[in-house]
Each structure stands twice: as structure tokens, then as C-alpha cells.
Computed example of a mutant assay.
Amino acid sequence: MNTIIVDLKWQSLAQKALQGECIILEEGLAVLEADNDEVLLLLQAAFQVRKHFYGKKVKLNMIINAKSGLCPEDCGYCSQSIVSTAPVAKYTLLDKDTLLAGAREALARKAGTYCIVAAGKGPTDKELDQVIDAVKEIRETMPLKICACLGILKGNQAERLAEAGVHRYNHNLNTSKANYTAITTTHTYDQRVETVDQVKSQGMSPCSGVIIGMGETHQEIVEMAYALRELNVDSIPINFLNAVPGTPLEHAGRTPSMKALKVLALFRFICPSKEIRVAGGREVNLRTLQPLSLYAANSLFVGDYLTTAGQDVTADHQIIEDLGFEIELNAL
């Protein structure tokens, strides 16, 4: 197939996305199975969609691991789970002063969104009170958007977070429905969908994404993108498994950099108007090709992740500058 025909093929997917038409399964599989020689053309098509909705702006987000380890869940990818033997820090929910200090650090890193993340199946009412207390002060004193990621919500917890001023709530689907029980058995895929629906019902911005590299098929990757399109989430973090020693998935390996770029293009075509964030594992999986990810994605996590290190924030700022893009401040 010559270059012109290949280019037209990917351009047709971009046009579909811009017209609000969802690409079909066969087209999604073609993206993931494209020859590596076609990746630049594929990214150019994805960039047309990204640029239409987000221009050349890049949103930055920073995570604080507000409660580490001590988790009763058996998620195979997670170093904080009960089945992990990885040597991670274990501590209860951080106090308000520490959460406030994290928010100030987010501002220093030019992040517009500060993500408060706590390990566990879901928050206790006491933990929720602690988070809410910190959120209220952050809202009063700093120009930050706040995202909470506290697990499965129950009762009126979503309502209380919304009333406190939480802008966004993250609860990832992580993998496909078909692959779910191979990854975790202590909660269900449907419970995750229900939490996202709760968040939406309370007016918070829904954030939900995936982890690529956990034994899923190409068809299941396309199905994950369809599921998030159907859920109509605003933000989609695309994580690439960082196979931590001591976790059940420690031998899963890494996603090849070129495949990771194809995945990002796929999600841009299927969820064209949504924030697509290159998230955990990007440094390990994309390696030197990280700058190319921003031709499909429009958002990054800066700094460290929950239990693994990210790259120096100045490197991320330089990537954005060198691409001729710009940081979008104070935006969800």
C-alpha cells in the first residue's frame, strides 16, 4: 500500500471523529495493527482531531498518594494491594497540612489539577471528612482544580464531595469487562461503572481510564475505548503497565513504544473531544518517544505516580516547549 493511500485511510478516521461518527471495530483494530512505518501518518491524523478540540494546549495534573498500601483489594497490577510483596510505603490518610503542601507543589509544577488519591476499596466516612476539610481550604486559597480518587463510593459520599468543591472524580475501568476477573476478584467491573455514574449524577466531572499491557487483546482495547465513549467521561487517563516486582503482573513486560502511540491515536479517534492523558508508565513504555504522545493526547501527569517515580518536571515542561505547545493553566 503506497503512502498516499495509507494517509487517506487514517485521514478518513480523523474525518469520522470530527463529524461525531464513531469508527467501527475493524477500523479500530487496523489502528492497533498498523505497520510501524505508518505511525507518523497515524499520529498526524490523530493530531488533526486533537488540535480541533484542544489546539496546542497541554493540561498538567499532579498526584499525591494520600493513603498508601494497607489495601484489601487483589488488583494484580498494584504494588499497594494485599497480594503484592513490593516494598512500598504504608501509611494512613495524610493530614490536612500535608495535603495542602501537595497542592502548593502542584502549583509550582504548573499543574492545573491536583489529584488526591487514596488506596483502598473505598473511603470511610472519617477519611472522607479529612479529604473534604482539605479540599475546602484548597478551594479557598489556591487556583487549582481538584480531582479525588478514593475508590468505590457509597451512600451520600459522592454528594458530599461535590458539595465540598471537588471538581472531578477518577475511577478507572482499568481493563475490559471480559478481562476483569483475570486482574481482580475483590470488586467487579460493574461496580466501577456504577461509581462513575454516581459521580456524574452529582455534577462532578467523571474521569475514567485504562491500563494497557495486562493481557488484553487488541479487540478488548477497542472495546475499552467504546465503553468510555458510552460512559461519556470527560477525562481518560491512559496508563501503560509498569510491571512492578512483587505484583502478580511483575513478568508482564512493557508495551512497545510504537504500540503505545497507536493506542493513544485509537482513543483520540473513538473519544475525539475528551481529555486524553498520558498517565502512569509513560516513561517506562514510551521512553524516548514521549513527545510524540502529545500529538494524540492533550494532558500529562507531572511528577511521581503512586508508588513509582516519574521524570523530572522540567523535562516535561521542555517537551511541551520544544513541540511548540503551551501549558494550559487552571483547566479541568
Rank of each mutant, 00 (worst) to 15 (best):
V278Y: 02
A225I: 11
A101V: 00
A118M: 03
V58M: 15
C22V: 08
Q318V: 07
I327W: 01
K51W: 03
M258G: 00
L60A: 14
T185G: 12
D197Y: 00
I270D: 05
C22L: 09
E328L: 07
H251P: 00
L323G: 03
A265W: 02
G55D: 11
T314Q: 07
I276H: 05
K57E: 14
S257N: 01
E159Y: 08
C147L: 09
Y295V: 04
E328P: 01
R139Y: 00
R282W: 03
E27V: 13
H52R: 14
A45R: 09
T113C: 06
V83W: 02
N232L: 10
G324V: 09
A17I: 10
I146W: 07
R139N: 10
C75N: 14
G69W: 02
E230L: 03
L150K: 07
A86E: 00
P143F: 13
I4W: 08
F325H: 06
I238A: 13
L60M: 15
L144W: 03
K90Q: 15
L294T: 08
P87D: 11
P237H: 04
K9H: 14
I221G: 04
I236L: 08
K59D: 07
G280D: 03
G213R: 09
F325M: 11
V199I: 12
A148K: 02
S299A: 14
M142A: 10
H187D: 12
E250C: 04
P237S: 12
L99I: 13
V31Q: 13
A148S: 09
Q19V: 09
D35M: 10
S84W: 01
A108I: 05
K262M: 06
S273C: 05
E220W: 06
V210T: 09
L289Y: 03
E326I: 02
K136N: 10
Y77E: 05
Q290M: 13
M214C: 15
L18T: 13
L300T: 05
K259F: 11
S12V: 07
I146V: 15
Y114R: 11
R277L: 13
I138V: 10
E38P: 01
V278Q: 02
E321G: 03
N172W: 09
N2Y: 02
E275Y: 09
A134C: 11
T308R: 03
M224F: 06
D304C: 05
Q48T: 10
N170M: 05
K57M: 07
D312V: 11
V233H: 08
L32G: 15
A106W: 04
C22T: 13
A331L: 07
T141W: 06
G280P: 07
I221E: 10
Q290F: 09
F53L: 11
Q202T: 11
V284N: 00
V284T: 04
V49T: 08
V222F: 09
H167Q: 02
Q15G: 07
D322G: 03
